[in-house]
Design a binder for these strands. Structure first.
Lengths: 183, 183
DNA sequence: CTCAAAGCTGGCCGATCGGTCAGTAACTGA
DNA sequence: TCAGTTACTGACCGATCGGCCAGCTTTGAG
């Protein structure tokens, strides 16, 4: 147990600032001022600016991996339902972190830590598409996987007109409808 | 008619580089090297780095405005259909520019040039939701409006597994299905 | 009490950033 | 032919960036 909670405060401040101005748009100085410590203190607790980014995204990535593990042992149909609900929940729970990632997509996608996310998303897409996947259903799956976090992203930017519960239910319903087979 | 086409080459290079590394992640030096001219030449043709960004996004924004103008004079039902098709087409035609915008969302959304985009998107959302809009249909509209450009964005990042025509048709179908009333 | 570890600071570093400026070569209309 | 505009260069500027380091204070186990 550490003797101060500065480390957590740094992650909290960095998450908010990265989400608001982007990773490259936020300097170590900005974070230090927000936390109320020196710039050197940041680099005492973390190896580098990039290390801060990696650490604050770690919980979200870990939960995404756990979601995938849970889905892998299910049959296709229940897996799809669980995938939609799980992905909606995850996107809403980690709004801020999604804002951070979306705020610097081109720069982040090439980093090793986020290539894992790319693979996870691809697997999720396969689960949503199902075994009898047509091109149309694959595109629909990508639409849902891209749109849900984007809404969670926008929900913090002033578009937050519905309470969380209602938003969650609406997202699940809209996603399910988009993915439903034509019949 | 100018005596050189350097200006266009700058916009072309800047679009590609901004899309690949983000606005803040691309320096004037990077662009100059790509174009094959000096950094000072960039600032001879454009007032500033931000002016380059503004100019290269201008055509996409202008077309979005034209789309809205076309939709405003239609009845709700055909407006919705036209909105889906028009938005899909626009997203695919301006993939690179969307990558640029998505690559620096937090920093860009606050700039005056992009607040207009925000308003346009809100209006598009109302058109998609229709006159009898429920919260669920509003969220579905936002899902579609966020997901479509995100797919166009990802389509250039290696996910480009379908030919454009097929992708376009699949997007329109998935979006239409997501927005369809429950009945 | 002692002392090493933990926590933190101010100052400094080289690199890079966007942007400016004086100067110049080339083309053009009169 | 020649003045003037266009197009461009290389050198330079102040600001800011991420990161490093010597040293100070606080803390808690022995």
């Amino acid at each position: 147990m550490g003797r101060s909670n500065t480390r957590e405060e740094i992650l909290t401040s960095a998450t908010r600032l990265f989400a608001a101005a982007g990773y490259k748009g936020t300097s170590l100085h900005d974070i230090a001022v927000d936390v109320g410590c020196s710039k050197a203190a940041l680099l005492y607790h973390f190896d580098s600016k990039e290390a801060i980014l990696t650490q604050l995204c770690a919980p979200a990535i870990a939960e995404l991996e756990q979601l995938q593990d849970r889905l892998e042992v299910l049959e296709p149909a229940p897996a799809r339902t669980a995938a939609i609900e799980g992905f909606v929940d995850l996107s809403m729970r980690y709004r801020k972190e999604i804002q951070v990632i979306y705020g610097d997509l081109p720069g982040l996608l090439q980093r090793p830590a986020f290539q894992r996310v790319h693979l996870l998303t691809q697997r999720l897409c396969e689960i949503l598409t199902g075994p009898s996947g047509t091109p149309v259903s694959a595109v629909a799956a990508k639409l849902v996987l891209a749109g849900i976090p984007a809404i969670a992203f926008a929900a913090d930017q002033g578009m937050h007109c519905y309470p969380d519960e209602e938003l969650r239910a609406a997202l699940i319903e809209a996603a399910t409808r988009a993915l439903a087979p034509l019949t």
